[in-house]
Design a protein around this nucleic acid. Structure first.
Lengths: 146, 146
DNA sequence: CGGATTTATATGTATATACATCTATTCTGC
DNA sequence: GCAGAATAGATGTATATACATATAAATCCG
């Protein structure tokens, strides 16, 4: 096993960690034909309830046009549905019952991946990483204001 | 500015942070026609010296076949060159002088992005995040051994 | 009210990413 | 040394991602 060398660039370091994490979660979810990213969208919709595509993009800090393609895949699987709102430019998204079911089926595997990682990291670093990976975004969005 | 909501999934949280970071660094490097990912490869090669594609993949925790495409772009720009090693399956990679020059040109912009983020985050969290984002990978690779 | 502006999403395009598979090469056991 | 296994990288394919631009709808202002 190669030792993991620190990188001086925060962006490179976080992207690298994200790649490694994605491997772990993708492996866990692969038997269900679900990618980590797709699981994230299902879980986010389950937590957020009915939201517009733009709101989902804000929640995930993801360009809302990027979501167009991912949502199309999830729609094709029958896991989400969308309908126009009063403002007919918007699309309101929610899980279908098949989507709820798929999320439910995937959740134990996701929990095992989380638990495995958490036990390897230790609770302190686990919470630390979860917290800082959320906080760091604020620092970036502030900068972008100007 | 939307408040950033914590996500329960570590993978989702890290991927989201990586997207946000990538925005910041891409914005900083855009005037040079360089993506954050490409900068990462140039910087990694500068730090690592001449390495094979596989070794670079290990350093970045990136599938070495993924590198094939990125390296092609950097080669087309004249920033890297590769030659076969004694083992003729391998490709040994290194920066060209144009590559060194491009890295040098990009470095001040990268440093400003790093400094901006670091001052927003504070030194403690900056170091924390850099450390944990490196350590978390070990936890994953161990799991994958079995 | 109506034209100009803004906004939400879709589409075209380029890069990032991994996996399955393929080819060329090296290594291993005999 | 050779046949079979293992390895390095290339290629095909699918998804992830952002940006520029297009389209449609809403809002603003005179």
């Amino acid at each position: 096993m190669p030792a993991i060398v620190a990188l001086p660039c925060m962006c490179a370091s976080l992207r690298r960690a994200a790649r490694a994490l994605t491997q772990l979660y993708d492996d866990a979810l692969r038997p269900l034909g679900l990618r980590a990213t797709q699981f994230t969208v299902l879980q986010a919709l389950s937590l957020a309830g009915e939201v517009s595509q733009g709101e989902l993009g804000q929640l995930l800090v993801m360009d809302s046009t990027t979501l167009t393609r991912t949502l199309r895949i999830l729609s094709a699987q029958g896991w989400i549905e969308n309908r126009p709102g009063k403002d007919r430019r918007e699309r309101w998204l929610r899980l279908t019952s098949a989507g709820h079911h798929q999320l439910k089926r995937a959740t134990p595997r996701w929990e095992r991946a989380q638990a495995r990682l958490r036990s390897r990291l230790g609770d302190a670093r686990w919470h630390e990483l979860l917290k800082v990976s959320t906080e760091v975004i604020g620092g970036i969005l502030e900068s972008a204001e100007d």
